[in-house]
Design a protein around this nucleic acid. Structure first.
Length: 808
RNA sequence: GCCCGGGUGGUGUAAUGGUAGACACUGGGGACUUAAAAUCCCCUGGGGGCAACCCCGUGCAGGUUCGAGUCCUGCCCCGGGCACCA
């Protein structure tokens, strides 16, 4: 047998092991009997027609490595995969291709499956799911019904983006600077439609509070915190002389004496009643203009402020003076009360508005020593022009004035959140129909659970039209349905639900995919949930993760789950760029794994991806670097071939020490997802082994741990090596190697000697020598002596086994 | 504007406050070969020196410390997210 014949052939090795894994059901965990369940979740993909790209691959490989490490450490790992195939992306893509999403999706999914399988992921395909499968969305609809039953699903009119050219509702990300992404010259407008919402804001405090208890990436937690956006302030009532009152929300009740005007959002319900006859025409024109603007442009903060006077007045509860009421689109109906008190001296936006419209500006906070320039929005000052509160610091005045107003029944302490209720309605076709029937006699009637699923009918003409009504409304025989309560003819809800609802609960379904009669089986769920490890991209830091936390909390409150946080540990992976640039279709630099896998093999590709940089940061995909990984695997292959069971590790002291050091380092790195440095440690270890053993044989006892350590990274390669080392069972059933601290220890260490902070010498010394001995040796060193000369040593710092620092 | 990341050789990157550049890639030199590929060995931050060695160097300016890539203060640049949230 020559070296040539026995060279590492990744294609052959990978084909063999992928076949054996399927035959032996290596990756199928028995969910019922698992003693140490470990639910290893990764974010299921949207199966695009382009197929899996390196971004997906990077995410999945990193999560898979985590699962494999856990399995070697004794856990029963469940690693499922599924497809998030509903939604506007699939629908738009199908329209472009003049086909139907239902015809497109299966091909895309099988393409993804092929690519995923080729990567050697430890996936349990027996629990695969697809959100478009009626067996799945039956339960998505069921979840809707549970929320509805709990009073958390409600209808409300809300603005949507509308493109008059494509005559359809657009998602926010399809609006580019106020124009439709497909018609760059057509301004997007807004339409008001009745929509279904979930009352996630009722859970705001709990969603915020629980974050402290979660083992999540800090960046993700912070993003959630900001999104919830809790702020404490006061609601203050301004009474109109004509009757009625305007309630405003402010975080600065201390500045109420400086409130010289009020601003309502144009859509505010009180606008009608406060508007005076002489202003009505202007007000109506302004409101029409605001209504015509699309939702996205409306929220852009850079544009100049506009507004009109309503002719109405209300009494400032602090000063007792009447202040004018304006409307302006910089005040948003969706936050607080949709009305603000204008304090131009201490708020930049109000200042800009007051300056433009010549409204009075009254300073009520003095910023201290340097003359305070207005607007002064900081809260480190003392009150002026504020009656009995003059001289009080802002921090003290905030509670004091809130209490004072509360006593007069003109204000209350109030906590506000930026988080808004979750709009789940989509006036589109490609999603699960919302399971509701409208009856003229009975009103809104939820579809009885026994009638689920409400099947999405396969209609060819699924394109949205200019009615603003979902395409399903055109499908009469589906749309008309008897009322479940009274039996008279009713109408189905024709909106479908948001894809985020599909993904809000998919982790609950995976372990229970076999159960046809329930969304999730209580016993299975109890054993396997919550999810032990969830790895995914920070692009879902806010919406997906927030919605699935909310859904879980609601199900817990309904007594259907016994935990309220779905993901015990969440880690955000980084992003892969290409030669320093973001990958994108328009740049034409999107890397597809297939060619790399075909040329180098999945194992080399997996390891290279993980070697690009820290997993939680990302890295730069350069084509040249991958050969280094392959060279490493070739060398390790050679070391395995030369392994000798009869050799004694004690005769290979340097290698043995390095192996134990590598086990120590890699064990720590792997659980922290530091795959790049774990790979470097493996390389270092092999370099030492080769230096010590040369071409000759290596003690098998020293190569075996390396094979186990590399197996999560290069699973097929490791299986083949393991077999060649004489093992009859799969390497996935091996035991993670333990290190011996004594064997890992270096007996001789290099001591650095610094003189006045500069390195002047390096000494080889016995481990653990005393400070006195170390200093003595340092002073005896020729190189060190030259820099000390005759000067007395004023100070000596000794760090054991590391350095001696001398100050002269 | 606000909130997260990040700025270290030719490149990707590594360094519990303790030897800056581990591990790789690229490039250069050599060995083997009729030759090439593969493989193996050596060199590869800048400057000075025949050499032993020395000086400089982690975006910029300061500070703390015996000692700073790492900690503190103030900036600059790049990437991402949020954005009139009262």
């Amino acid at each position: 047998m020559t070296d040539r014949d026995d060279a590492y052939d990744p294609q052959a090795v990978e084909e063999k092991w992928q076949r054996l894994w399927v035959e032996r059901r290596t990756h199928v965990t028995d969910l019922k009997s698992a003693k140490e369940p470990y639910y290893n979740l990764m974010m299921f993909p949207y199966p695009s027609a382009e197929g899996l790209h390196v971004g997906n691959a990077f995410a999945f490989i990193g999560a898979d490595i985590n699962g494999r490490v856990q399995r070697l450490q004794g856990k029963n790992v469940f690693e499922p995969m599924g497809f998030d195939a509903f939604g506007i992306h699939s629908e738009n893509f199908a329209m472009q291709r003049n086909t139907h999403p239902a015809r497109l999706i299966p091909a895309n999914i099988s393409q993804f499956q092929r690519q995923l399988k080729r990567l050697g992921l430890m996936l349990n395909w027996e629990h695969e799911l697809s959100t478009t499968d009626p067996d799945y969305y039956k339960w998505t609809q069921w979840i809707f019904l549970q929320l509805h039953k709990a009073g958390l699903a409600f209808r409300k009119k809300a603005a949507v983006n509308w493109c008059p050219e494509c005559k359809t509702v657009l998602a926010n990300e399809q609006v580019i600077n106020g124009f439709c992404e497909r018609h760059p010259t057509v301004a997007v407008t807004q339409k008001f439609l009745e929509q279904w919402f979930f009352a996630i804001t009722k859970y705001a405090e709990r969603l915020l509070k629980n974050l402290e208890t979660l083992d999540w990436s800090a960046s993700t937690r912070v993003a959630q915190e900001n999104w919830i956006g809790r702020s404490v302030g006061a609601e203050i009532r301004f009474k109109a002389p004509t009757g009625g009152e305007v309630t405003v929300f402010t975080t600065r009740p201390d500045t109420v004496f400086g409130a010289t005007f009020l601003v309502l959002a144009p859509e505010h319900p009180l606008v009608e009643s406060v508007t005076g006859q002489e202003c009505r025409a202007d007000v109506n024109a302004y409101r029409r203009k605001a209504a015509a603007m699309d939702v996205v442009t409306r929220r852009v903060g850079s544009k100049e402020k506009t507004g009109v006077f309503t002719g109405g007045y209300a009494k400032n509860p602090a000063t007792g003076e009447n202040v004018p009421i304006w409307i302006a689109d910089y005040v948003l109906m969706g936050y607080g009360t949709g009305a603000i008190m204008g304090v131009p001296a201490h708020d930049e936006r109000d200042f800009e508005f007051a300056t433009k419209y010549k409204l009075p500006i009254v300073q009520v906070v003095d910023g201290g020593a340097e003359k305070t320039e207005l607007p002064f929005s900081a809260s480190d000052g003392k009150l002026v022009n504020s009656g009995k509160f003059n001289g009080v610091s802002c921090d003290d005045a905030i509670p004091a004035i809130t209490t004072w107003l509360a006593e007069k029944k003109l204000g209350t302490l109030q906590v506000q959140y930026k988080l808004h209720d979750w709009c789940i309605s989509r006036q589109r076709y490609w999603g699960p129909p919302i399971p509701v029937i409208y009856c003229d006699a009975c009103g809104i009637v939820p579809v009885p659970e026994k009638d689920l699923p409400v099947i999405l009918p396969l209609i060819e003409d699924y394109r949205p039209d200019d009615s603003g009504v979902s395409p399903l409304a055109r499908h009469e025989e589906w749309y008309r349905v008897p009322c479940p309560t009274c039996g008279k003819m009713g109408r189905r809800e024709t909106d479908v639900s948001d894809t985020f609802l599909d993904s809000a609960w998919y982790f609950l379904r995976y372990p229970s995919t076999g159960f046809k009669d329930k969304a999730f089986d209580p016993a299975t769920t109890k054993r396997w949930l919550p999810v032990n490890s969830y790895i995914g991209g920070n692009e879902h830091a806010v919406l997906h993760l927030m919605y699935s936390r909310f859904t879980t909390m609601v199900l817990k409150d309904l007594g259907l789950l016994d935990f309220e946080e779905p993901y015990v540990r969440f880690r955000a992976h980084g992003t892969i760029v290409k030669d320093g640039n973001k990958m994108s279709k328009s740049r034409g630099n999107v890397v597809i794994p297939d060619n790399f896998v075909a040329q180098w093999g999945a194992d080399t590709f997996r390891m290279y991806m993980m070697f690009l940089g820290p997993y939680q940061v990302g890295g730069d995909f350069r084509d040249e670097g991958i050969s280094g990984i392959r060279r490493f695997l070739d060398k390790l292959w050679g070391a395995v071939a030369a392994a000798d069971k009869k050799k004694n590790p004690a005769d290979f002291e340097a290698t043995r020490r390095k192996v134990h050091q590598a086990i120590r380092k890699i064990t720590a790195d792997m659980v922290e997802l530091r795959y790049n440095t774990a790979i470097a440690a493996l390389m270092e270890c092999l370099n030492v082994l080769r230096a010590e053993c040369g071409e000759g044989g290596v003690p098998a006892e020293l190569v075996e741990p390396m094979v186990i350590l590399i197996s999560p990274l290069a699973p097929h390669f490791a299986e083949e090596c393991w077999e060649r080392l004489g093992h009859k069972t799969s390497v996935v059933d091996a035991t993670w190697p333990a290190f011996d601290e004594a064997l890992a220890r270096e007996d001789e260490v290099e001591l650095v000697v610094q003189v006045n902070g500069k390195v002047r010498g390096r000494l080889k010394v016995a481990r653990g020598i005393s400070q006195d001995d170390a200093v003595k040796l340092a002073l005896a060193d020729e190189g060190v002596k030259r820099f000390i000369e005759a000067k007395p040593v004023r100070k000596a710092v000794y760090v054991e086994n590391k350095l001696v620092s001398l100050v002269v």
